[in-house]
Computed example of a mutant assay.
Amino acid sequence: MREGFRQSIAWLHTWCGLLVCWVLLLVFAGGTASYYKEEISLWMMPELHATRSAPVPQAQAIEHAVAYLQQKAPRAERWFITLPAERSVAMRVGWVAPAGDGNG
């Protein structure tokens, strides 16, 4: 050990700090990119621009969602409907199956 203990620890502290900072930078950049996933997908696939120009009225979306849920899960305890919004053009539906339905 040609350097002193203090210089060795300073070198280790510097490089460990730089490594941690680069990892945090990648984590924060990935989190930011995932937040803007819909916009990035739209930007990367120009063919989707046509779907963004004609939104479905919410009343019609609710009617379709309820009809689908009545057909697929008429005995469900709860239904969940997420309507299309400005950032997401897709409508999502889900349900909670009744207890003892054999799906758990």
Rank of each mutant, 00 (worst) to 15 (best):
V56F: 05
L24M: 13
A29S: 13
T32V: 13
A99G: 05
M45S: 08
A50I: 09
I9P: 00
A99V: 13
L48E: 02
A61S: 12
A97H: 10
G31W: 09
L48D: 00
A65F: 04
S8R: 15
P74E: 05
R92P: 00
F28S: 10
A54Q: 14
A50H: 02
R52T: 08
W22A: 15
K72S: 13
Q7C: 09
Y35M: 12
L18I: 03
E77I: 10
V96S: 09
D101L: 12
W15G: 04
S88Q: 11
W43T: 02
P57M: 08
R92M: 05
C16S: 13
W22L: 15
R75V: 02
C16H: 05
P46Q: 06
L24F: 09
G94H: 06
A50K: 08
E63Y: 06
Q60W: 00
P84I: 07
Q7V: 10
S53G: 00
V66K: 12
A59L: 00
E47M: 04
N103K: 13
E39C: 00
A90H: 08
V56N: 02
Q70F: 04
I81A: 08
W95L: 00
K37M: 04
L12P: 02
S88F: 03
A99R: 11
Q70E: 15
R6P: 00
V27I: 15
V66Q: 06
L12K: 06
R78D: 15
R75N: 11
V56M: 15
L42C: 00
A73N: 01
M44E: 08
L12M: 06
K37T: 05
E77R: 06
F80P: 00
A67D: 03
F28L: 15
A50D: 03
H13C: 14
V66H: 01
V23R: 02
V93R: 05
L24A: 12
R78V: 14
T51R: 02
V20C: 14
G31M: 10
S41I: 01
L26W: 06
I81W: 03
M44S: 03
R87K: 11
W79G: 10
M1H: 10
Y36N: 08
E38T: 12
A10I: 06
L18E: 01
A90R: 11
L18S: 05
M91F: 05
F28H: 02
